[in-house]
Design a protein around this nucleic acid. Sequence first.
DNA 1: CCATAGAACAAGACTCAGTCTCAATACAAC
DNA 2: GTTGTATTGAGACTGAGTCTTGTTCTATGG
Lengths: 147, 147
Amino acid sequence: MTTTEGSIHELVEHRLRQSDLRYTPGRRAIVELLLRRGQPASIADVEAALPQVPRSSAYRHLVDLQGVGVVRRVAANDDFTRFELAEDLTEHHHHLLCTSCGSVTDVTPTEAFEHAVHAMVEEFSRQEGFAPLSHSLDVLGHCQRCR
Amino acid sequence: MTTTEGSIHELVEHRLRQSDLRYTPGRRAIVELLLRRGQPASIADVEAALPQVPRSSAYRHLVDLQGVGVVRRVAANDDFTRFELAEDLTEHHHHLLCTSCGSVTDVTPTEAFEHAVHAMVEEFSRQEGFAPLSHSLDVLGHCQRCR
DNA sequence: CCATAGAACAAGACTCAGTCTCAATACAAC
DNA sequence: GTTGTATTGAGACTGAGTCTTGTTCTATGG
């Protein structure tokens, strides 16, 4: 999927409106930061990039945006929760997690691989009576800088 | 891989010894619990099953066991870190994460699927200069009880 | 215009999972 | 036994994340 930046903001605004929420400058700053980074961001990243946004507001914005399906939480390998734009605003991807520095890198799978994943997920779901919504492959290892 | 319970304890003891650590009753109780459950356990699970082990000791044991490669941390979808035996003591598996109750269920992949994963991980690593160590597919959705 | 109701916001108090400290105890080797 | 090292329990401590409160913005309508 190739979504233009403009249409993303329209979509975000629309989803917020559905829940009687406004697309305010604070919320927009968060979304633009996540768009710009293209990688999951921790609260520390947000604070560094947007010093004018108080921590409590940043958390609240992220929770609100998560509530309307614009933002997703990513559990990294260190103590910090990270946030990224939901996949339907960007594209489906997986994560490389560095066990040394905790960094998270997005990578895009091939179609062939995704077919294999879907078949496997189907099988798991049948076995366990589980209703799947999404999936993510996490690869643990050492990033270029840490190896 | 089919590892008997006895050989697991020998292996754990050996790995601890390598780091001048003893396989004490407290540590053994943790390992036995994780073996018995066969599923990732949170600290609350450990406390419930082993009320005689103080929380601080349970955490310390888990950290020690993680340090010698016997235990692995699992980031679930709720606020609680979970712990499971390292894959080389059990067998390679993936996780079904319930976004409603936070439960984590282990599932074992087919060989064909693992081949596809290895090829994809190879490709990611080449692209990003990343040195992979292990991987895990997390499927988000609703478990049988919550759906 | 002004009023008003609900959303947004900043600041800081608060929670609690997880870590650290320290004094006491067990154990292994000599 | 003595000594050095690992282990343990209890509780203090840390800090990411949440909640509360009082204030400010903004949309609507009279």
